[in-house]
Amino acid sequence: MLEARLEQANLFKKVVDAIKDLVQDCNFDCNDSGIALQAMDNSHVALVSMMLRSESFAPFRCDRNIALGINLTSLTKVLKCAQSDDILTLKAEDAPDVVELVFESAESDRISEYSIKLMDIDQEHLGIPETDYGATISMPAAEFQRICRDLIALSESVSIECSKEGVKFACQGDIGSGAVTLRQHTNVDKPEMNVEINMSEPVSLTFSLKYLVNFCKASGLSNQVRLCLSNEVPLLVEYSLANNSHLRFYLAPKIGD
């Protein structure tokens, strides 16, 4: 059986909120290392990969591998019933028909119990190769969100160029063009504002802004976002969570013929 107690229901709410517009029906794969999710969007352009490690829960118990097939719209409806500082416990039997969600108020004696019917989801699992990326950029998540939202007003696509000069986000559209360049930057008082650029080779790639704006819905999960790029491979957009947990998005590039 699965029993996973999360001190902050809000964390799970934010994760589901961040991915629900990208993927609809997902298997939450539970085993003794934690709860993982991998899902592609309908057009097979983007991939979501979430890992909530067992250390993020207290207690965490999962005796055998259980796949919880859940519709994220249904899950969102139930998670709305949790208050942000509630404690969340996920429960399921070994061969479950339902997943149970228990919300407990830390301050009062209220206990709310909900269940969601599970679905049989035949999901393709993709192997993501270990990649030595040509460029890795860590930057404030809010800054990345701002850049993507600003540039989508002008164009469908953004080119991300990483060179010795820094990282340049540039777009061209019908009304004109836009570009934002960031350089490495250390803020001693506010390290969450740091921009760190590690580059082993110059990288230049083009991506759909629609997807990047969608990924940025995860901005509330982490102060910083990490962008990993290599020429002609998918972009990795990573939001680190506590206890070595993470929410990762992969986006296939646009490539000229």
């Binding site: 991939l47 998918p234 296939a252 000229g256």
Partner: peptide, 14 residues
């Protein structure tokens, strides 16, 4: 012109 690739072209099915 730049064409949108599929993620399936990069990651293999397990």
């Amino acid at each position: 012109t730049q064409n949108q690739r599929s993620i399936l072209g990069f990651f293999s099915k397990k």
